[in-house]
Amino acid sequence: MATTVTDSRTLSKKGIGGGPKSRPSNGGGLPKRNGHDRAFPDLDSSANRYRIGTWVALASIMMLFTALSSAYIVRAASSSDWQPLALPRLLWLSTALILISSGTLEAARRKLRDATTNAYKPWLLLTAVLGLGFLVSQMLVWRQLVRQGVYVVSNPHSSFFYVFTGVHGAHLLGGLIALSYLSLRKRAPSENQAAVTQAQAGADAVTLYWHFMDLLWLYLFVLLFYVR
């Protein structure tokens, strides 16, 4: 509660809230912003918003999974009808696919920095294929389980299994769409600095999201089969 009585007499007294007296260069902490002069578009700023936006979105996705996880833990602790699912082998394949895809995506992103080549494209495509492979593999796991007679309603563990993999899959699908957008979109002309920065920021955002989905899957994998 650090307010002070400022009984200033002159206008030159700085504004309240203790802002520095000289004009700060930007709106607080974040990289340069000089949007005040429109001849110099604020590249960093508009690029940054994709990164910030992605972090913010991830926070909310994390809350969704936190909520489902706590439901999982409470439900597991409070009932006698819990029959643990045997770990479907195919899940190891899914896990491997998504782990590798994170690597290939990282490679693509590195290549993208080098604005002159198109070398990122194959990596990006590979990532998308691996991601698709993950989804297919998940689907196959579902098919397998269904064939074994393990349905959503069979018992709470299977319910949660389907819910977690389904919700994760839906989010991954979103990532896949973003990836395809990245690989399909026209390369920014390298002489247009603004467009390049923008493209890089978009790629960073998608990469961040994808890595998060990867980690999230690892977390779910452990939660579903190794926490008891």
Partner: peptide, 14 residues
């Protein structure tokens, strides 16, 4: 009255 507040008061009522 031109005032931005008072730390003392804030502390007291908190």
């Amino acid at each position: 009255v031109y005032t931005h507040g008072s730390n003392r008061l804030e502390v007291i009522w908190t």
